[in-house]
Simulated scan of single mutants.
Amino acid sequence: MILRTGQRVVFIGDSITDCGRRDTATPYGAGYVSLVRALVGARHPELDVEWINRGVSGDTVRDLAARWDDDAIAVRPDWLSVMIGINDIWRRYGDRPDDAVPIDEYERTLRDLLRRAVDATGCRLILGDPFLIETDRSDPQRADTDRYCAVVAALAAEFDAVHVPTQAAFDRVLAVSPAKRWADDRVHPHLPGHAVLADAFLAALGATATP
């Protein structure tokens, strides 16, 4: 387990991170953040860790940039978990293509935000991939998602961050189960889909199950 007592863990991202944390499921949301918090507590009860959710539904990296100082830097995280990119890609395939974020802008913006956070707070980073719950890798949105995932993996190496390969986690379950089990729209997971995400985060954190 890489977390230590007294540390503050901040999660920031889009609707997958938000998951009702600002209304029906305050303050942690009803998704993977809440599951990670609960399971780390259950598996490592000796740890006293503070958890903060700063996900906002609909966000792209542009939106993160607009609120970064208040929602990422000002809260002084010891660990900052960032999972962003789904909307940056998805908008290209919906009714808001002008709001899509090209991959070069995505990489440049995300790198700048991560550098600012590390320089300002000394935090360690946890970077989760964007994902699409889709088995056909030739599907245009899935192919784009894989390219953005490669950007996140490269940034994780650049910043010596903990990398959470969420797309690979979904690919493993999709190999033996239908996509509709995990999400209706390929993007917003049902609770079992959030459990897939939580498992991936727990593995990356080293939060092993009790024997």
Score class of each variant (00 low, 15 high):
Arg54His: 13
Gly55His: 07
Gly55Arg: 09
Gly58Lys: 06
Asp59Arg: 04
Asp63Asn: 15
Asp63Ala: 14
Leu64Cys: 06
Arg67Met: 12
Asp70His: 11
Ala72Lys: 04
Val75Arg: 06
Val75Leu: 11
Arg76Ser: 15
Trp79Val: 12
Trp79Met: 07
Leu80Asp: 04
Leu80Glu: 04
Met83Lys: 06
Ile84Val: 13
Gly85Arg: 00
Ile86Gly: 01
Ile86Val: 15
Asp88Thr: 03
Ile89Ser: 00
Arg92Cys: 01
Tyr93Met: 01
Gly94Asp: 14
Gly94Arg: 14
Asp95Tyr: 08
Asp95Arg: 13
Arg96Ile: 04
Pro97Asn: 08
Pro97His: 12
Pro97Ser: 11
Asp98Trp: 08
Asp99Gly: 10
Asp99Ser: 13
Asp99Lys: 14
Ala100Thr: 08
Ala100Tyr: 02
Ala100Trp: 05
Val101Gly: 00
Ile103Ser: 05
Glu105Leu: 11
Glu105Lys: 01
Glu105Tyr: 00
Glu105Phe: 02
Tyr106Thr: 01
Tyr106Pro: 06
Glu107Ser: 10
Glu107Leu: 12
Arg108Thr: 15
Thr109Glu: 10
Leu110His: 03
Leu113Arg: 12
Leu113Asn: 09
Leu113Pro: 02
Leu114Ser: 08
Leu114Lys: 06
Arg115Val: 12
Arg115Cys: 07
Arg116Met: 11
Ala117Trp: 02
Ala117Phe: 05
Ala117Ile: 09
Asp119Pro: 02
Asp119Val: 14
Asp119Phe: 03
Asp119Tyr: 03
Ala120Leu: 05
Ala120Trp: 05
Gly122Trp: 11
Arg124Ile: 04
Ile126Phe: 02
Leu127Lys: 01
Gly128Arg: 00
Gly128Ile: 05
Asp129Cys: 07
Asp129Leu: 07
Pro130Trp: 04
Leu132Cys: 14
Leu132Tyr: 13
Ile133Pro: 04
Ile133His: 05
Arg137Pro: 04
Ser138Cys: 10
Ser138Thr: 15
Asp139Ile: 03
Gln141Leu: 15
Ala143Gly: 03
Asp144Pro: 00
Asp144Gln: 10
Tyr148Thr: 00
Cys149His: 02
Ala150Lys: 06
Ala150Arg: 11
Ala150Trp: 07
